[in-house]
Design a binder for these strands. Structure first.
Lengths: 188, 188, 188, 188
DNA sequence: GATGAATGAGAATTCATTCAT
DNA sequence: GATGAATGAATTCTCATTCAT
């Protein structure tokens, strides 16, 4: 059974999505993964480690989704548009992932250094895009992470609000928001 | 000691800030507040209620801070600037408050309807400012909440990142961010 | 307020009847009696004492009800019939009282010596009736308490079963049971 | 140790006998059974379930004891005598069982329907004996449960009184009581 | 490697009792 | 006498983790 680790991870993911960050027990994860409780501890030294791994897994998935079809050869706006739409679609398709991330980052599990490393590892092309635009004088003279934040990351909270039902979006609003993001980072 | 309720609330706040939303026990809250465990239950029917009250308290404080010195008679940009700076300063001064809110809103405690009512109650002037600008044709034709979100609320995640040490800010960056926010909502 | 003690007692009775022997708190008793929690302790040294007093109160009421219209001048069977019917009616009218008594007597509160004293105090005429019949050679040569038990006290469990819905009674059955009781104690 | 469930059950039984139906904690049960608190919850989902199981277990044991050596081929009186003596001996040998049952039936745990099912399951032969006698015209024309009650079940309260020390019995009295029970149910 | 029964510390909550006012 | 806020030990139940098989 080469996929036991995988099964455990995805069980944890699914359960957290359903019941919230702290609403799951190792027993539940084990049951859903069709393994014994003790088995989890062969793959993850403790619950914290398991949660960290889920986090990294999701981050990797997110990066993959967001970078899909982004071609560094294309013009900046086209790339930006693709990035923005990818982000939006990914967040809407996986609201749980978002909910998990927000809680994880606000929790004591969150570790600045590890986060930076993962960002580096998975989101390098995104940072490079913004850095490149900054150097070319297209974007504001802000650190790439800040540009990325202004343009993409704030969608996280926004989509969370939508998921919770506070705000409703439609295609017209999408375009406006995309435009607003673009204008936020453009140098004047 | 007429302020026992107050002491309990602020103990809960402080502990959540230190140990995270789910990392606190009623015992700890009681000990820190210098009351007996049972005493908490005279003031809050259960843990959930206590957490909800902390949330509302914080929201009220935040609204007060953010609306300070905002004068509806002044020009739009002046008002916006004041709102933005107030928000920024409040968030920086009370990073715990922020951390709490993000966790609360991602938790199962969060209830859309109650949230809407509280928003209405405490942040009405903010919404009015954005609505007014929209009607005048100054801001994009987006719902006031979305404008508010684009301009102010996304600072939440940003400051959280700063607090966690991922990004460093300075006065120059402030001005850039303020400007970026302004440009994000302006009608072109 | 001369009746505060009385109010506390009857609140306790009523609550126990509604929620069972151990389902009541002193707070609830106090609230229902319209007194402060502490006030109960001016009249009853502790919960146990309160429960004992309720027990005695009920026993006295039961004795009064059972002895109503029993005339020592009348023939034995007439007296017996009256006793039996009184008992039956009392138990049916106050199933709570019964429920309370059964639980009390099975609980560690129950004290043999006190019980004997109370029996003596309140049920003397009943015992005398059976003793008298025994001496006359009408009833079996058994201790009066046993005769009383065979004739009357076993109705307690029976009525409890009825109250719980296990058995249904009607007038014809009454007469049969009355007759059965009479035959159980008669000397042959 | 394959009998952990058994140990828990009998610890609960013993403690209830000692301290009363409501005077036991899961801790105490666990300690007496030499298991950890949590272990109880592997076998019984909660305290209520544990108490219900003790009840059923005892009922089954009682039925077994009471039906011992009762032969449906023998004459009615012989069967009755055996049933009555079995009941008496069982009750005297297991006064705790009795005490438990009375408290259980008076408690909110008691459920009419479940009780009927258990009665059916375990005491069917007893009911059949009485029903059969009724049909033959030997016993009073009363429902079998009532005949059973008059003949046997009222011994419960009686033995309880003896156990508590209110009444003393001897062999002569046994015979008298047995005879009284027989006469109570006989058709005249 | 895998299992899952067992563990027991720790959680939320209740409630008999006290005592300053 | 009366009050009722405060107490804190005790209760039921959960769950991360271990370890004999």
């Amino acid at each position: 059974m080469p996929d036991k680790r995988e099964r455990i991870l995805s069980s944890a993911e699914a359960l957290i999505a359903q019941r919230g960050f702290h609403g799951i027990s190792m027993q539940q994860v084990a049951t859903r993964a069709n393994v014994a409780t003790g088995t989890i501890y062969r793959y993850f030294s403790d619950k914290e480690t398991l949660l960290r791994c889920v986090h990294e897994e999701r981050l990797r998935d997110a990066a993959t989704a967001i970078l899909q079809n982004v071609d560094a050869e294309e013009p900046s706006y086209a790339q930006f548009r693709q990035l923005w739409l990818n982000t939006m679609h990914y967040l809407q398709a996986s609201p749980d992932s978002l909910c998990y991330r927000v809680q994880y980052e606000a929790s004591p599990l969150f570790n600045r250094e590890e986060e930076r490393l993962m960002d580096e590892r998975y989101f390098k092309p995104v940072h490079e895009f913004f850095e490149c635009g900054r150097v070319k004088g297209l974007f504001r003279d802000l650190p790439a992470e800040l540009l990325g934040f202004l343009a993409l990351e704030n969608l996280m909270l926004l989509i969370q609000k939508c998921t919770k039902g506070c705000i409703e979006l439609n295609n017209d609003i999408y375009e406006q928001l995309l435009d607003a993001s673009w204008n936020a980072i453009l140098k004047r």
